[in-house]
Design a protein around this nucleic acid. Sequence first.
DNA 1: TTTAATGCAAACGATTTGCAGCGAA
DNA 2: TTCGCTGCAAATCGTTTGCATTAAA
Lengths: 163, 163
Amino acid sequence: MLGSGRNKDFAMDTEKRLQKVLSRRNLRMTTERQEILEAVSRMQNHFTVSDLIRQLKSNGGTAGRSTVYRAIPHLIEAKIIRRASMSCSKEEQRYEGINSLHHHDHLTCEMCGEIVEFEDKEIERLQRQVAQKYGYRLTRHFLELRGICKKCQDKIIEEAVGV
Amino acid sequence: MLGSGRNKDFAMDTEKRLQKVLSRRNLRMTTERQEILEAVSRMQNHFTVSDLIRQLKSNGGTAGRSTVYRAIPHLIEAKIIRRASMSCSKEEQRYEGINSLHHHDHLTCEMCGEIVEFEDKEIERLQRQVAQKYGYRLTRHFLELRGICKKCQDKIIEEAVGV
DNA sequence: TTTAATGCAAACGATTTGCAGCGAA
DNA sequence: TTCGCTGCAAATCGTTTGCATTAAA
């Protein structure tokens, strides 16, 4: 039941999907929310709320900061964006657009901040297996690997050896 | 008995490790930091800074909130505690004591908040494999599965069916 | 003695909220 | 005409920081 329904949702364009989520709760599609959608569609990689607002303003948008914040839960529910990093508390939350069914997790370099996106079906299968083992129905997962990328490893070695 | 004996070992062991981390940076072991260690050793599961302070105060400690916050990075560096949850944005950060080398991840119920700790060597092997594939040296990972536990699933069904 | 550590209160910064006017349905 | 939506400013709240004082080493 979930499968084909979800595919259909993804085929719908983002405005329609947001519309659907909104009307399900008797909420309204406004010009501000359209501006926000437009800005999201223009964002390339990961972005913060501040990034999004900058994009929105530079495109003539007038929506305010709190309006953007108020829109985010709906955008997430409509699967238009998702949280992109589990970064710890105080940092500004990062988001990313979802433009396909292609799910991925992140591998972050702790020195330079480079982010590699990866997908591992086997890890996801094992996650479902773990949830099942404890009687849980899995709704989502957060996986972020952190490490040191090749370049930064080289940099460390250079500094140590002095070459 | 066993309990207090373990606490003592934990306390002795941890004090040494903290000492080492501190002196490496020319920092000092103070009575407040000992109080905090003591409180950490008394915490059972996951805890917030507020929980920790409550424990500390109830045990006669006098260390203030900012002192606890200032101690946390050192406790983490000494591998005495670690972050326990990827809690999103505003929630108070959760920590947990590390009393053995036994590593685990978390499976959280999104309705009742129950947390199951699990360990999956195979998932960890695959994570290392992913990091290697991109030339990264893995330093750590954050994995949190979220879902609905069996009890809450039953509750949902009861409410829907009206039994 | 030196200088890190402490408690307090004020500051921070991302996010949320109260409110009075505005606008979609 | 409804109510939900908006911008604004003020409020939250976990966390950090400045400062004068205290206390390890």
